[in-house]
Nucleic acid binder design. Structure first.
Lengths: 151, 151
DNA sequence: CGGTAAACGCAACCTTGTTGCATTTGGAGG
DNA sequence: CCTCCAAATGCAACAAGGTTGCGTTTACCG
């Protein structure tokens, strides 16, 4: 599995973008690479920071917004809004590993914890409704914040 | 139950605010009244519009933000962020009627539908974690949007 | 009826996100 | 390899949502 990886995946992002039917540009490849490398969804500001490479030409703020929109539009990225009200982007597919388990959000520190438990089966939907995604989110205080509170 | 309601509840909001241990001001009472009267969580802009009463002195934009923050801080209101990234506020307790059932969010039109089904029991939590709230949210396209798409 | 900390009004500012328009470029076709 | 055009980019300006600083007013405690 580790063999031959490097030469084969040099341009994964470029291939994905080409396959999605949109133009392959340096900016899009860099952004999609960054999204793939990230373990969590990134905000526009965080992406801007990660793309700040002296070896590469600086990317315009607006261009980054438009690249993100285009990646979302062609299905290569996902857009969500976090608890502070800012948009966060992730590479499509990256969230699949999070679809199959339950999340716990600490209302104190804002941390998100992945629990081992599988989400329960969804209930029957009214006629005509189509289900895409199930989010079983628990909210409360995590172990760390609970103990700090208790003192 | 309908008897004697009016005189008894003239100042419900004021009493709640007093009981919460913060100063009772005209602004806070008006805002909390508006939140109680609303059937859905309101954004800052929506609240501003509803409070625009010629009989009352106009309320400063910043003051409204601070009143909302104070109501949230003392537990009388809840703050959440909608799909556009805007904060919405609701009177505490108003959401209790939504705690006991499942929600379906249409990713097309943004609508939220309350399903009859009860949320499943939460899984065991790691040691030290405290559970406050369970959100079992389904995402997909509602009947209306599904049929429009299908055409 | 003061005194005081909290609440308010005002102005300025910051962050996030969008729009319009001129310029550059990917890539398809000759 | 060259040409061409829609798509992508850069730049400037704007808009909405939200925050900070500071001087003034006010709720409410004694």
């Amino acid at each position: 599995m580790a063999r031959d990886l490097a030469p084969a995946q040099i341009d994964v992002s470029a291939d994905l973008i080409r396959a999605a039917g949109v133009k392959v540009t340096r900016g899009r490849v860099r952004v999609l690479d960054a999204l793939h490398a990230a373990r969590q969804p990134l905000s526009h500001a965080e992406l801007e920071a990660r793309l700040d490479d002296p070896a590469e030409p600086a990317m315009d703020r607006v261009t980054l917004y438009r690249i993100l929109d285009s990646l979302v539009a062609c299905g290569l990225a996902l857009k969500a809004v976090d608890t502070r009200g800012v948009f966060r982007f992730s590479a499509a597919g990256a969230q699949r590993q999070h679809a199959k388990h339950v999340h716990f959000r600490c209302t104190d520190c804002g941390g998100v914890f992945c629990l081992k438990a599988e989400p329960p089966p969804p209930p029957r939907l009214p006629r005509g409704f189509r289900l895409n995604e199930v989010a079983f989110d628990l909210r409360g205080t995590c172990a760390g914040c609970s103990s700090r509170e208790g003192v």
